[in-house]
């Protein structure tokens, strides 16, 4: 049976890599984001790689009016509706410290926008009694750190939302995968100093595809970040508060 996948934030390199893998499996793709020219290019590319269909649709996490047309389009397709969320924004923490108004955008992009979208989508997954939501959060959400705690807190909020959504959709026959990537070699991390153990977007996409197939709940990708974050989460606060990692 052909699957429909909504990809939110489809211009990101992780989303592109996942869309290509879904295309190879013959999925129907709704590529959603703001740069329509770029999305149109990715749609043609996915068709060439085997997608049953691929369409570019406008999605802006801060403009909730863009949500309904995407959900209507997906609902018009037969079979399973799935959604993968790759949206989020990470301005430099120092910039946010200097201009707290930036906080609003980070929370809109990383939490409120995607959570609102998924809340609108959830009834469709429930009524069809199948479908998977993939929510990409971040290891930054596991503990607030001096370098990116606004981004981290928005991702933590989204991760908690996904946990609750999983609780809700599981009983209706759906599933939610929470993905916590470590450092990934994307435009967001290009040129940032201090990156290590960097994964390619395609390696992350491969992990996500496997997690979807195996109905995993929470994955770290690459896998060793689970252990790195286990350690970081267990550092006592009286020590952690003096660290800058």
């Amino acid at each position: 049976m052909t699957q429909t996948w909504i990809i939110l934030g489809a211009t990101s390199s992780m989303a592109r890599a996942m869309a290509r893998r879904l295309a190879k499996d013959g999925a129907r793709l709704l590529l959603c984001g703001r740069d329509m020219d770029d999305l149109a290019a990715s749609a043609v590319d996915c068709l060439a790689r085997g997608a049953a269909s691929a369409e570019a649709l406008r999605f802006d996490a801060r403009d909730h009016a863009t949500f309904a047309p995407i959900i209507d389009k997906a609902a018009s397709e037969e079979g399973e509706i799935n959604c993968a969320v790759f949206v989020g924004s990470m301005p430099d923490q120092a910039e946010i410290d200097a201009d707290p108004a930036l906080l609003d955008g980070v929370v809109q992009d990383s939490y409120i926008g995607p959570a609102t979208f998924l809340t609108l989508l959830a009834p469709h997954i429930e009524s069809r009694a199948r479908g998977t939501v993939v929510g990409v959060t971040s290891v930054a959400g596991d503990r607030g750190r001096i370098g990116n705690y606004v981004y981290g807190s928005a991702k933590a909020g989204f991760a908690t939302y996904l946990s609750g959504l999983r609780n809700r959709l599981t009983r209706a026959g759906g599933h939610v995968v929470t993905v916590k990537p470590g450092f990934v070699d994307t435009a967001m991390t290009w040129g940032i100093e201090g990156m290590f153990l960097v994964a390619t977007p395609d390696a992350v996409a491969k992990d996500i595809m496997r997690a979807v197939a195996k109905k995993r709940n929470v994955i770290y990708t690459p896998f060793f970040w689970r252990y790195i974050m286990l350690i970081i989460r267990h550092i006592p606060e009286f020590i952690f508060k003096k660290m800058s990692i």
Binding site: S13, A41, S42, V44, D45, L47, A48, R49, A187
Partner: peptide, 9 residues
């Protein structure tokens, strides 16, 4: 290397 898509066929 990241600009690696088919644009039309």
């Amino acid at each position: 290397s990241r600009l690696d898509r088919v644009l039309s066929f």
